Deep mutational scan, measured.
Amino acid sequence: KKTSWTEEEDRIIYQAHKRLGNRWAEIAKLLPGRTDNAIKNHWNSTMRRKVEQEGYLQESSK
């Protein structure tokens, strides 16, 4: 079943993607209940745009 993505999950994906790049299977290990494919789709459909537009979460990672 599809549940919506939480801010916490987005944060984990964002940090992991910065470190690992497009290694979705590795990132998926950090998110129980999410598949690598689901994460990749979420990144491509939602997060990548956010990151590019806003420099997503930069201000809170100090």
Rank of each mutant, 00 (worst) to 15 (best):
K1L: 07
K1M: 12
K1G: 11
K1E: 09
K1C: 07
K1D: 07
K1W: 03
K2H: 06
K2V: 12
K2M: 14
K2R: 11
K2G: 12
K2L: 10
K2F: 05
K2C: 10
K2A: 07
K2E: 10
T3S: 12
T3Q: 08
T3N: 08
T3G: 10
T3A: 11
T3R: 06
T3I: 15
S4D: 10
S4A: 06
S4L: 05
S4P: 10
W5Q: 02
W5P: 03
W5S: 02
W5A: 01
W5C: 02
W5I: 04
T6V: 03
T6L: 03
T6Q: 04
T6G: 05
T6F: 01
T6H: 03
T6E: 04
T6A: 05
E7W: 01
E7A: 10
E7N: 03
E7D: 13
E8M: 10
E8C: 07
E8Q: 14
E8F: 09
E8G: 08
E8W: 07
E8D: 09
E9P: 01
E9W: 00
E9F: 00
E9C: 00
E9S: 01
E9M: 02
E9H: 02
D10V: 05
D10I: 05
D10F: 01
D10T: 09
D10G: 03
D10P: 01
R11Y: 10
R11E: 09
R11H: 07
R11T: 09
R11M: 10
R11A: 10
R11G: 06
I12H: 02
I12A: 07
I12W: 01
I12D: 03
I12R: 06
I12V: 12
I12T: 07
I12K: 14
I12P: 01
I13P: 00
I13F: 03
I13T: 03
I13V: 07
Y14N: 05
Y14V: 11
Y14S: 12
Y14E: 09
Y14K: 09
Y14C: 11
Y14P: 00
Y14W: 11
Q15A: 15
H17Y: 13
L20F: 07
L20V: 11
G21H: 03
G21M: 03
G21D: 04
G21E: 06
G21A: 05
G21I: 00
G21R: 04
G21Q: 02
G21Y: 02
W24Q: 01
W24R: 01
W24C: 02
W24A: 03
W24P: 04
W24Y: 04
W24L: 00
W24M: 01
W24D: 01
W24V: 02
A25H: 15
A25M: 05
A25Q: 14
A25P: 14
E26Q: 08
E26I: 00
E26L: 04
E26A: 05
E26W: 01
E26K: 06
E26H: 03
I27Q: 02
I27C: 03
I27D: 01
I27W: 00
I27L: 04
A28P: 01
A28F: 00
A28T: 01
A28N: 02
A28M: 04
K29F: 02
K29Q: 10
K29P: 04
K29R: 10
L30S: 06
L30M: 08
L30T: 04
L30C: 06
L31D: 00
L31I: 15
L31M: 05
L31F: 03
L31V: 09
L31C: 14
P32M: 05
P32S: 05
P32L: 04
P32V: 09
P32T: 07
P32E: 13
P32I: 05
P32Q: 06
P32H: 03
G33K: 12
G33R: 05
G33N: 07
G33S: 09
G33F: 05
G33P: 02
G33W: 08
G33Q: 05
G33V: 04
R34N: 00
R34H: 14
R34D: 02
R34A: 07
R34Q: 03
R34K: 13
R34S: 03
R34P: 00
R34F: 01
T35G: 09
T35D: 15
T35C: 09
T35W: 03
T35I: 03
D36E: 09
D36W: 03
D36R: 02
N37I: 15
N37W: 08
N37S: 11
N37D: 14
N37V: 14
A38N: 09
A38M: 11
A38L: 10
A38P: 01
A38I: 13
A38S: 12
A38G: 06
A38K: 06
I39L: 04
I39S: 01
I39T: 06
I39D: 00
I39W: 00
K40E: 14
K40H: 05
K40N: 08
N41M: 15
N41W: 07
N41S: 13
N41C: 07
N41E: 14
N41V: 12
H42F: 03
H42V: 01
H42L: 02
H42G: 00
H42P: 01
W43M: 05
W43F: 12
W43T: 01
W43K: 03
W43N: 03
W43L: 03
N44K: 15
N44Y: 08
N44E: 14
N44Q: 15
S45M: 07
S45E: 13
S45V: 11
S45H: 13
S45I: 12
S45T: 15
S45A: 11
S45G: 12
T46Y: 14
T46K: 10
T46M: 14
T46F: 07
M47P: 04
M47K: 14
M47Y: 03
M47L: 15
M47S: 05
M47R: 05
R48S: 11
R48G: 10
R49F: 08
R49A: 14
R49I: 09
R49Y: 04
R49S: 12
R49H: 15
R49K: 07
R49V: 14
K50C: 12
K50S: 11
K50V: 07
K50E: 08
K50N: 08
K50P: 11
K50F: 05
V51C: 09
V51Y: 09
V51P: 07
V51K: 08
E52A: 12
E52T: 13
E52G: 09
E52F: 08
E52Y: 08
E52W: 09
E52D: 13
E52S: 08
E52C: 07
Q53W: 05
Q53A: 12
Q53Y: 06
Q53S: 12
Q53E: 14
Q53L: 11
E54T: 12
E54D: 11
E54H: 07
E54W: 09
E54K: 11
E54V: 09
E54Q: 12
G55D: 10
G55F: 09
G55Q: 08
G55C: 14
G55V: 10
G55N: 15
G55K: 09
Y56H: 09
Y56N: 15
Y56D: 12
Y56C: 08
Y56S: 14
Y56E: 15
L57M: 11
L57H: 06
L57F: 08
L57A: 12
Q58V: 10
Q58M: 07
Q58F: 05
Q58A: 14
Q58Y: 06
E59Q: 11
E59W: 07
E59H: 12
S60N: 06
S60A: 12
S60I: 13
S60K: 09
S60G: 14
S60M: 07
S61R: 09
S61M: 12
S61C: 10
S61L: 12
S61F: 05
S61K: 15
S61G: 15
S61Q: 15
S61H: 06
K62L: 11
K62T: 13
K62N: 08
K62F: 10
K62A: 15
K62H: 04
